[in-house]
């Protein structure tokens, strides 16, 4: 892949820069934060941004920068896990249904239609209401909810690719179904699968933020971007900076990845 060749050169590079910056902050957060993200200090409650506390402090006097660094890490781990669960299951389902077709495919796709017509957060809420809130349940819930979207992408690629002559050729050579599916066809789905992994990551970040914002995701005192926004909501009047830092972090994350995936999708 040669990024220099696509139409949105500038945006692609901007996306790469934003993402590198955000990733740098988050990765640093795993090893080092300026302050202990959970250390409360009553004297510092709701203090505005200063040189000591670049993004200010929250209502417990915790350093917001440190909390954003840690919280974004939590959000990222959850989002990556969600994408992993959704994409791996989705790929298997999509490959099987797309390749074999028939009534099994029909049934699964009907189910898919129903599931994808729901907003994913609504489904996640059903899941959470059944199994209860918490990080692991969110990963499981959103992961499963993401299965249909990946299944759909992979399935439609498989439907096109299985009619291609190289697949017929492989059959003539005597390759078995599973070899054809996973050795011959699957590598060819990367073109659409990789951008959709990036988009999926974005959706997962947004979904985690949404659920935690509603108090149904990550539970305190653990910090996540959505959790922080939820806490910040009550202090919008007194310390608006509390909301801005995690909010901007979400925007930059999502923006960076969508610019990159936009650039990838533009390639021929």
């Amino acid at each position: 892949m040669q990024p220099g060749k696509n139409k949105h050169d500038f945006n692609y590079i901007l996306g790469l820069s934003i993402t590198s910056l955000v990733l740098l902050v988050v990765l640093t957060g795993f090893f080092y934060t300026p302050y202990d993200p959970n250390k409360m200090d009553a004297a510092l409650r709701n203090s505005p941004p200063s040189l000591l506390h670049l993004f200010g402090t929250d209502n417990f006097g915790r350093d917001i920068l440190s909390r954003v660094m840690k919280g974004a890490g939590t959000t990222y781990i959850i989002a990556v896990s969600i994408v992993f669960v959704g994409a791996s299951l989705g790929t298997i389902v999509g490959a099987l249904t797309g390749y074999f077709g028939g009534w099994f495919d029909e049934a699964i796709m009907r189910l898919n239609d129903v599931l994808t017509s729901f907003p994913s957060i609504l489904l996640a809420l059903v899941f959470v209401s059944v199994f209860g809130p918490g990080s692991y349940n969110i990963i499981l819930a959103l992961g499963i909810i993401f299965v249909p979207s990946y299944a759909r992408v992979v399935r439609s690629e498989f439907i096109v690719l299985k009619e291609r002559d190289f697949v017929k050729n492989a059959k003539l050579m005597g390759a078995g179904n599973f070899r054809i599916m996973f050795v011959h066809i699957l590598p060819n789905t990367g073109r659409v699968l990789i951008p959709s992994l990036l988009i999926g990551f974005n959706n997962a970040v947004l979904a985690e933020a949404g659920l935690s914002f509603l108090g149904l995701g990550v539970q305190p005192p653990q910090a996540s971007l959505g959790r922080m926004l939820s806490e910040a909501q009550g202090y919008l009047l007194d310390s608006p900076w509390y909301a801005i830092a995690p909010g901007v972090m979400i925007i930059l994350t999502v923006l960076g990845f969508s610019l990159i995936s936009g650039g990838l999708a533009n390639e021929k």
């Binding site: 901007l14 947004l206 933020a209 949404g210 909501q233 909010g247 979400i250 925007i251 923006l255 610019l259």
Partner: peptide, 17 residues
């Protein structure tokens, strides 16, 4: 594309805030 992408990246609830 960029302006669109920026607006698409803002979660509704943060925008609400």
């Amino acid at each position: 594309t960029l302006v669109n992408q920026v607006f698409m990246s803002v979660p509704s609830f943060f925008l609400g805030m």
